[in-house]
Design a protein around this nucleic acid. Structure first.
Length: 715
RNA sequence: GGGUAAUUAGCUCAGUUGGUUAGAGCGCCGCAUUCACAUUGCGGAGGUCACUGGUUCAAGUCCAGUAUUGCCCACCA
């Protein structure tokens, strides 16, 4: 047996151990009659570098899959990377910007090709970083979300939605970012408190001199697209004006005053201008009163439509100044007040969202959501933490139709063709007349990633799909519960009639030591690669799990991983000591007896007692791991190992072992307890435990050459 | 506005069907060093379990309310 170094230096072992696992195909599922357990790895964006959020997710997933493997299940963990359509395009545009270029310098085809090359070059990086974390996933199953089989499945879903009349193309009001030139779904819009000006404008009543109705707005320029003025039906100030007309200033149009329940009489003047083409609430009001929709802003934020020539094609902000000036000249501005209000903005660049009328592909989500709700309510899918079930159900119950088209080049092209208002759905044009134009849009990334559980497993014919679907658990970040998890459930039930996973485990946010969100701009990020380099991967993994709570955010401090490093060193030295004093001990079959039986062979009460406590610990750890209580499991393990085994028993064993009558059984207790501890520590600290297992194996104390494919302790 | 979670030692947090004297890690104080490990050991200080009320023989734990903080959803024209 080679001598063990006095201290455990993680760097000296990790690479070798990972290669050992790879060499033995330890991550590959052995397909037999055992119970199946699979996890789909949430694919990190192909252009990203590993951050601490990934590290947490991968640690927990690896922990679950290693535990299942030790418990004798056939396991498959499928890794992948995400093309992440819009997000990647934004990153690439930033890169272009640094080079003094923009996306408009390239044709869409060239741009797509360039991003593809960029992503292909980046992809290897994050994959190698995932390997550093010790991820025991089946690399032969590695997927990329633009793989042809996945794209094909996505297309089939699109066709089927069309056949089932759940897909439609419509020009409706959508959330549009004029900077990125794409629409979004409701989920990609965030709200921010912004300073603004509330301008009160007097609209002259038709046929009545010097009589006005005053509206309040933060967007004066949109008055040019007004279709009505609305007041609350119960607002006595305006009851006599309902049904009357006003002359819309700066235009020659006359618009009605309507009564609508959406108007809050206590806000502003209690009268509101209605601009159906550029406000969601106004769009709703207009549909209730059959008002015309007048578009005055285009996709680039330029003024269009029936507006004065002076501002045609001008930017929104210029138009605003012009409109306010003109109104002031006509003495139609009542007053202007500063206001702090919530503004819908693009979640990437903070540009205010412009609601615009754009033709998009929509999915009718209500019928899909209904089945998802049922699956959750009947317990076909369970969630940790449990309160997330209600969040998900509430979201599904209030779901609105989903805009699945994006005006980005990087993504899965939508298989649809247009010719003079005709629409053809399919990958190729219906004829080669050359009149058909392919849809230039791409799918919302979440539409394709929402199908990954079955798409990445090779639905419908692949043996992986047949063996491992539905997957056992979906482990992912809490903040994509609606974006991703909800959509996976809906689309999976729709396509496969099965839930995509039986259980969901949501991890919280990793915060900085002071409980603040980590962000690159704040400079308060913890770089997992640095922690791994400094303290070791096992130490990082321990630090991410120990002392945290399922689904709750937690503060990441360096101390957490230092604690993990110290623990690794302690494990190393306990095992090293046992190896040193017993290196000539040859295995006795008694060693493998179930603990209950092994205990009966012991003469000494202390030896019996430590085995009894070991058995208790196995029970506790098992129960915790079965219930997603990973941190609590590490608590039990830590306490038994450090205090009960090392501090008490190991010291005591030094006396016992010098007693000739007790020597043999004491060695057995030491070896057996350490062996079972290595096994239980393995899911959370795979490298050091496997490394020591190798020494146990070479000494002849264990049968299985690899801990990773060994089995959970027998009680 | 609606929802949800958190509030326990200086700090970060456990405490799972209510049950002796409320725990851990880190930090702090004292002692110990050829004996697996100083990335260590032994010992110690430190808590009105946010607050108010209720249920109970018994409440950190269950119920109601209050406060503070975080997050999610809706959204202000």
């Amino acid at each position: 047996m080679p001598d063990l170094a006095k201290a455990y230096i993680a760097k000296d072992h990790e690479k070798e151990i990972y290669n050992l696992w790879l060499k033995h195909n330890a991550f590959k599922p052995k397909v037999d009659s055992r119970e199946a357990f699979s996890i789909l790895m949430p694919p990190p964006n192909a252009n990203e570098s590993l951050h601490v959020g990934h590290a947490l997710g991968i640690t927990v997933e690896d922990l679950m899959i290693r535990y299942a493997r030790l418990k004798g299940k056939k396991t498959l963990w499928i890794p992948g990377t995400d093309h992440a359509g819009f997000e990647t395009q934004v990153v690439y545009e930033k890169k272009l910007q640094k080079e003094g270029k923009s996306r408009f310098d390239f044709s869409p085809d060239d741009l797509r090709k360039n991003i593809r090359e960029y992503v292909d070059a980046q992809r290897e990086k994050i994959i190698s970083q995932i390997k550093l974390l010790g991820a025991s996933c089946d690399w032969d199953s590695l997927y990329f979300t633009l793989d042809s089989n996945i794209v094909e499945t996505v297309y089939q879903t699109y066709y089927r939605l069309n056949q089932d009349k759940l897909l439609y193309r419509a020009k409706k009001l959508v959330n549009y970012c004029i900077k990125h030139d794409t629409s979004f779904s409701d989920l990609e819009v965030v709200y921010e408190d912004r300073e603004g000006t509330l301008t009160e404008i007097k609209y002259p009543l038709s046929g009545q001199k010097n009589k006005f109705i005053t509206v309040a707005t933060t967007r004066p320029e949109t008055m040019l697209g007004d279709a009505a003025v609305a007041v609350n039906p119960n607002d006595e100030r305006y009851t006599n004006l309902i049904g009357k007309m006003v002359n819309l200033p700066l235009t020659d149009r006359r618009i009605p005053i309507v009564a609508d329940r959406a108007v809050d009489p206590d806000f502003g003047t209690g009268a509101v201008k209605v601009t159906p083409a550029h406000s969601h609430i106004d769009y709703e009001i207009s549909s209730r009163h059959d008002l015309p929709i007048i578009e005055i802003i285009d996709r680039h934020g330029k003024m269009i439509g029936p507006i004065p020539d002076e501002i045609k094609n001008k930017k929104i902000i210029e138009a605003r100044e012009w409109v306010v000036n003109q109104l002031e000249k006509q003495k139609l501005i009542n007053k202007k007040t500063a206001i702090n209000h919530r503004v819908a903005v693009c979640y990437k660049c903070g540009t205010p969202i412009e609601p615009l009328m754009v033709e998009q592909w929509w999915i009718k989500t209500k019928p899909l959501a209904k089945r998802a709700i049922e699956a959750i309510k009947t317990g076909q899918i369970t969630i940790t933490p449990k309160e997330s079930s209600d969040h998900l159900i509430t979201w599904l119950e209030n779901i609105i139709d989903w805009n699945i088209s994006r005006q980005t080049v990087w993504g899965i092209p939508i298989p649809a063709w247009f010719k003079n208002g005709e629409i053809h759905i399919g990958q190729t044009a219906p004829d080669d007349s050359g009149d058909w134009q392919q849809d230039k849009d791409t799918f919302d990334t979440w539409f394709s990633s929402g199908q990954l559980p079955f798409a990445a497993l090779g639905y419908p014919n692949d043996s992986k799909y047949k063996t491992f679907f539905p997957t056992g658990v979906m482990e992912t970040a809490r903040d994509i519960l609606f974006f991703w998890v909800g959509r996976m459930i809906m689309l999976s039930l729709y396509r496969t009639d099965q839930v995509p996973f039986k259980h969901i485990y949501l991890h919280g946010l990793v915060l900085d030591p002071y409980g603040k969100k980590m962000s690159k701009s704040k400079g308060n990020t913890v770089n997992p690669l640095e922690v791994m380099e400094k303290s070791g991967t096992d130490a990082l993994r321990w630090g991410l799990v120990h002392g945290t709570s399922a689904g709750q955010n937690f503060n990441m401090t360096e101390d957490r991983s230092i604690g993990g490093r110290n623990l690794a060193n302690k494990i190393w030295n306990a095992a090293r000591y046992i190896l040193l004093i017993s290196k000539d001990y040859r295995k006795n079959q008694v060693l493998d007896l179930p603990l209950q039986d092994l205990m009966k062979t012991m003469d000494n009460a202390e030896n019996k007692a430590v085995l009894r406590d070991l058995s208790k610990t196995i029970n506790e750890v098992e129960k915790c791991l079965d219930e997603d209580q990973f941190a609590l499991a590490t608590d039990y393990l830590f306490d038994f190992f450090w205090h009960r085994f090392c501090d008490q028993y190991l010291e005591l064993s030094k006396k016992l072992i010098s007693d000739q009558k007790l020597e043999a059984e004491t060695r057995i207790v030491l070896i057996r307890t350490m062996r079972d501890l290595l096994t239980m520590f393995h899911p959370i600290m795979p490298f050091i435990t496997e490394s020591l297992w190798q020494h146990f194996y070479q000494t002849g104390w264990v049968e299985n050459p690899l801990l990773i494919t060994s089995h959970w302790p027998t009680k």
